[in-house]
Design a protein around this nucleic acid. Structure first.
Ligand SMILES: [Mn+2]
Ligand SMILES: [Mn+2]
Ligand SMILES: [Zn+2]
Ligand SMILES: [Zn+2]
Lengths: 136, 136
DNA sequence: CTTTAATATTATAATTATTCTAATCTCTTT
DNA sequence: AAAGAGATTAGAATAATTATAATATTAAAG
């Protein structure tokens, strides 16, 4: 359980102004035990439900993108028409349950080292992510 | 170089009606030597450019999804606000050049076998795809 | 070889997703 | 405490995707 005051400090330390909207978003996102995989819309609805306050959808987009840039969230590529985000910012991989449309974490050590035997001149590897699709 | 007549046959054999629109789309998509990675919008613009004819954007969506279902195209998950598609339907992986916003194929053998040491009860693996992001 | 009817397809219109920007708020400097 | 600079919010605009009414294709009947 992180307090409102702690979120304010964390935001300030990241040179993000601690607005009412951002504090609400922090409480929904980061007051959790487990990894949280969500779409912008999931988050938007949870904010209304959990805090009772209204944050505009555009602000949810803005804030999620700000948190992404600061490294507090990760964007997860899955082939859906919606982008997913992840509060687990460590290096890891995912199952995607196609039927349930749900992401499940896979720890790095459960996949083993991935050796890419090809390289592109002038470019270096930024990240390597595995997506395992599941069916029944 | 595949002829119009061949596309008509292929469509018929897939129980897809060989409409003027679909034949145009086939010519843009499949009259190529190399793998083609594209967004719906790329394809929409190329149809106008290459065939001179107008196919509505909705029809491009419809047709791409029809071809996907038939296995003539693959959907590629990258974290962008747009979905990419691929004429290379064999099992393979990708680099994504973040700056250029371009996909590059990686052959399966250039990645080696990927052993997933975790399983979800009642679910089986449908596909395993690696996405390697590149930066300068 | 028509005509007809069932079904598939197209493309406009509607909806949903995302971004832009003018008005507002926060914070630093005085 | 007041003002100015810059950051943030959220309504409006745009872009992406889907739903459905109109049209086209095909197979069957005459
Ligand atoms: Mn999208
Ligand atoms: Mn493109
Ligand atoms: Zn995760
Ligand atoms: Zn490819």
């Amino acid at each position: 359980m992180t307090s409102k005051q702690e979120f304010i400090e964390k935001l300030r330390n990241s040179s993000l102004r601690p607005t009412k909207q951002r504090i609400n978003i922090c409480e929904v996102l980061f007051n959790r035990d487990k990894t949280f995989h969500f779409t912008i819309n999931d988050l938007f609805n949870l904010i209304k439900d959990k805090t009772g306050e209204n944050v505009s959808l555009a602000t949810v987009y803005n804030t999620v993108h700000a948190f992404l840039k600061k490294g507090y969230l990760k964007e997860i590529p899955i082939n859906s028409n919606q982008t997913y985000f992840d509060t687990n910012v460590t290096d890891h991989h995912h199952f995607f349950d196609v039927k349930e449309e749900k992401l499940i974490d896979i720890k790095n050590e459960d996949v083993g080292p991935i050796e890419i035997q090809k390289s592109i001149p002038g470019k270096k590897i930024k990240s390597v992510e595995v997506l395992v699709k599941l069916e029944d």
